Simulated assay, not measured.
Amino acid sequence: MAFDYKNASPEALKNEYRRIAQAIGDDQFFTKKELAHLPAVLADGEQILAFCSGLMDSSTWLITLTDQRIIFLDKGLLFGLKQSAIDLDKVNAISGETGVFFGKISIQDGASNRTIDNVPKRTVVPFTNLVRDAINNRKHGKHTIGAAQADDPVARLEKLSAMLSKGLITEAEFTEQKARILQSV
């Protein structure tokens, strides 16, 4: 079942981020603010496949691969937010290089080439491979469960019911959202 990043508790988010970080080899050390902000920029049902951190434009960025796009987030040292994204359908190429301790990832789309330096060496190959696989899956119509459930009214109603039973929404909010979902069918 898809993970609900937008409505998850802080503890559930922390555990999910830890699971993803362990799978990719990232330490999450320099990107805690960006990870905290990430659910706010995700679309409903969008699933995180991987993330890593590195330097781009003299700042530390969180680079997040989802089932739909690659998101670049920099929360800034004191304030502000820089955010950009590349839809997976627009990525032309991804490449990686590793050095002794760090590596670099380059992502090209039709308009630009983004290079992320000082990426932890152990994350370069898994991240680039996952991007390549996600692009291939989208080209061949293979979407993750999260993306498929975003359009499924039954799954949306089940999710809404679970939110009500957990006390995350009120009965009035449940009734309003249920009516919207049923109208769209």
Rank of each mutant, 00 (worst) to 15 (best):
residue 48 I to R: 00
residue 107 I to Q: 03
residue 8 A to E: 11
residue 73 L to K: 02
residue 21 A to M: 05
residue 10 P to M: 10
residue 67 D to E: 06
residue 92 N to E: 15
residue 158 E to T: 10
residue 49 L to I: 14
residue 120 P to D: 03
residue 38 L to M: 14
residue 112 S to C: 04
residue 129 N to K: 14
residue 56 M to Y: 00
residue 168 L to Y: 06
residue 146 G to C: 10
residue 173 E to T: 11
residue 105 I to Y: 00
residue 28 Q to F: 14
residue 75 K to Q: 07
residue 10 P to W: 12
residue 141 G to R: 09
residue 129 N to Q: 15
residue 53 S to M: 06
residue 134 A to S: 11
residue 139 K to V: 09
residue 18 R to C: 09
residue 36 A to R: 10
residue 164 L to W: 04
residue 14 K to L: 15
residue 41 V to Q: 03
residue 150 A to N: 07
residue 43 A to C: 04
residue 92 N to A: 12
residue 91 V to C: 06
residue 176 E to S: 10
residue 70 I to M: 08
residue 62 L to E: 01
residue 41 V to Y: 05
residue 139 K to C: 05
residue 148 A to G: 06
residue 20 I to F: 03
residue 65 L to N: 02
residue 78 L to R: 10
residue 3 F to P: 04
residue 119 V to W: 03
residue 13 L to V: 03
residue 75 K to L: 00
residue 134 A to W: 08
residue 89 D to Q: 13
residue 63 I to N: 02
residue 86 I to P: 00
residue 21 A to G: 00
residue 15 N to G: 10
residue 43 A to H: 08
residue 60 T to M: 11
residue 21 A to Y: 01
residue 93 A to L: 11
residue 74 D to A: 14
residue 145 I to N: 07
residue 4 D to L: 06
residue 77 L to F: 13
residue 1 M to V: 11
residue 58 S to R: 11
residue 31 T to V: 15
residue 185 V to G: 10
residue 164 L to T: 04
residue 32 K to W: 06
residue 73 L to Y: 01
residue 65 L to P: 00
residue 120 P to Y: 04
residue 11 E to S: 12
residue 152 D to Y: 12
residue 131 V to T: 08
residue 71 I to Y: 01
residue 180 R to P: 06
residue 152 D to E: 11
residue 8 A to G: 11
residue 38 L to D: 05
residue 185 V to H: 11
residue 109 D to R: 04
residue 25 G to C: 08
residue 48 I to M: 08
residue 71 I to V: 15
